[in-house]
């Protein structure tokens, strides 16, 4: 065993062990790692957001628009709307009115703008990217015509492989469509799930649970690979056991 001489590796390894100590129970070492992580990440994100959002998207363009780089103060060309960034800048500043109880109601205006804008953007985005695209992708042929052709061909050629392939494809599509429609009906809230609707929604929840089971197994495998990666770091990078 030849432990690493790198100070950074030691810090990372000890913090990893501090976090693993939580498996036994909550303790001061875990608390230290937790508080360090939360504090460092919060501070890091403030600096990161300043330079990647406020400086590059607001202060930088405003400096160009008003600082003379675009040809002089207030000199803007057609299509150059950088000066309009004053409006989101002002709305951002209004958020800080929360710090003053007497005027904290003003901070609701920028919040209303933020939620309204995102709701509008997401509506069309979801409608195109999720709703219509998924409905369109679900429109599949049940393959009855192909099945008939396969039966006919198998009779002539005395072979059944194409027929079984066609039957398999038809079953796939029927199963997919049945799963889709019954799962959709499970999310129907305007009627009690009784009678035919009750049967179909129960079938739908079965389809959902089977898919959840498959997803669970798949994701657990990926999580175990993360754990293996952490152990590899401790054994190979820190303790240097090969």
């Amino acid at each position: 065993m030849n432990p690493s001489h790198d100070f950074g590796v030691w810090v990372a390894a000890l913090l990893t062990l501090f976090v693993f100590s939580f498996l036994y129970k909550d303790n001061p070492l875990y608390k230290f790692a937790e508080h360090l992580f939360v504090g460092v990440s919060a501070g890091y994100y403030i600096v990161l957001n300043y330079w990647t959002v406020i400086d590059s998207n607001l202060i930088g363009p405003l400096r160009v628009a008003f600082g003379g780089a675009a040809g002089g103060p207030l000199h803007v060309q057609q299509g150059d709307y950088r000066a309009l960034l004053l409006i989101p800048g002002l709305l951002g500043l209004l958020l800080f009115t929360r710090l003053f109880p007497r005027i904290d109601w003003i901070s609701r205006w920028p919040l209303a703008v933020i939620i309204g804008v995102y709701a509008g953007l997401k509506t069309t985005g979801f409608a195109q990217g999720d709703l219509v695209a998924q409905v369109q992708a679900s429109l599949q042929s049940f393959g009855l015509v192909e099945l008939a052709h396969a039966f006919k061909a198998s009779e002539l050629a005395h072979t059944s492989s194409a027929t079984w392939q066609a039957i398999g494809h038809s079953c796939d599509v029927v199963l997919f469509t049945a799963g889709l429609l019954t799962s959709l009906l499970y999310f129907y809230y305007s009627r009690e799930h009784k009678g035919a609707l009750g049967v179909s929604s129960r079938l739908g929840i079965w389809f959902l649970m089977v898919s959840f089971g498959a997803a669970y197994g798949y994701t657990v495998m990926s999580r175990i690979s993360l754990l293996i990666g952490r152990f590899q770091f401790l054994i190979e990078d820190w303790l240097r056991i090969r």
């Binding site: 219509v132 409905v135 369109q136 679900s138 429109l139 599949q140 042929s141 049940f142 393959g143 009855l144 015509v145 599509v173 469509t177 889709l180 429609l181 959709l184 009906l185 999310f187 129907y188």
Partner: peptide
Amino acid sequence: KVSIVIVIVVGCLLETFGVHAFTAWM
């Protein structure tokens, strides 16, 4: 959702009988 169920059933039947205009429109 009810409309989507109708669209899917109709669309699948059209596809089954070789009518692709509806799917193309979507």
